[in-house]
Design a binder for these strands. Sequence first.
DNA 1: ATTATCTATAGATCTATAGATAATGC
DNA 2: ATTATCTATAGATCTATAGATAATGC
Lengths: 211, 211
Amino acid sequence: MMNTEGITSSNSTENAILAAAEREFLTKGFAGARTTSIAEAAGVTHAMFHYYFRTKAKLFDRIIEEKISLLKEALFNPVENENASIEETIQTIIERHLDFIAANPDLPRFITSEVYSNTERSDVFLSQITKYAPIMLNNLQSKIDRAAEAGHCRHVDARMLILDITSLNIFSFIAAPILNAAISGLTADFEKFIAMRKKENFDTIMRKLKP
Amino acid sequence: MMNTEGITSSNSTENAILAAAEREFLTKGFAGARTTSIAEAAGVTHAMFHYYFRTKAKLFDRIIEEKISLLKEALFNPVENENASIEETIQTIIERHLDFIAANPDLPRFITSEVYSNTERSDVFLSQITKYAPIMLNNLQSKIDRAAEAGHCRHVDARMLILDITSLNIFSFIAAPILNAAISGLTADFEKFIAMRKKENFDTIMRKLKP
DNA sequence: ATTATCTATAGATCTATAGATAATGC
DNA sequence: ATTATCTATAGATCTATAGATAATGC
């Protein structure tokens, strides 16, 4: 099981600051976050913030690195089972991805907006993507090609398939407040909503793959 | 033809500030935007910023209102053609939506992150969504129900269909820098990318609707 | 007369540090 | 001795305003 509870350390003050900072940064972004608010939320004096982490940027970098490794683990470790059918593979990808986002609902918005508004800080993230995504996409493409030749599915582009899956899985979380305004109470029962989208998105993708 | 060129006014200094502010707010958000940067980008002294718009929040509100009316026009004015087939209706919705986003590529990220990080300023936007979305969804649902009864498509939930369409259309724009890192040069030829996603998303949705 | 612009600066807000003091672990 | 904490304040950054001056349109 992966760590979805955030960052931990041995020191309780340090811990409290880290937890408060994660919340502040994830919900407000780097520019909107305030070190005074973080210290206050952590229940420590503001000087403690600087004592443990020196600067706002350093603490932000530490948290974004933690999130990057979390993402890497969730996205690029699909425990490739050579024997799994294309249908099983797709289902596993969708379910894991959606479970991961459900456990980290603020992460997509945080990553997309920080990567966009910032260049230096997000280079680490983008270089990780550049490194790992092509491998994952090639593996999936081979699997699709083999299944297509055996007549089990259509010959689709793995890159478009992953773009479809991530779009369908992630967008609801990024736009949650707007969806709730458009469709009253849609995400009110969160568990139910996730379960529904899992089925729905799997169905959508499988129809696309069907010969 | 709708106005996708931003806000205009009769005064050139006011215009320059508005244009610069739109760029600054759309790319950096309210918290990240600097009134000094806006004035500099507009080529006027900082005092002019306050002379024309008094405060940062007032100018932000003006720009977000402009964007809301733009969205309303694009999303809730699908020129309901009673005689159009379900296929034609879906195609029109997807193409218009995608064209609108392509003309305003920063808008989805801006709206989703500002709506989330802010309560007061985005209430106007959410109340507009609450007002117009159900009407649009009901109209579409009736159309789907009629088509389904005639055997032209499956009996799907209009709300899920619109969620799928918006997810597939919007996500690429929100995650563009990440997609380009994962799939080198994917959005390099922007026109081509839009045309491809138009076809792809229409195909995905129609397969879902097929009996 | 009114509108537009400038320089200079006040005021507010945040980040970061200095320096003293208390707690902790050899 | 080292680590952790506090108070007080410096320093940096941004927003906003005051007050003078130039341009514009009756």
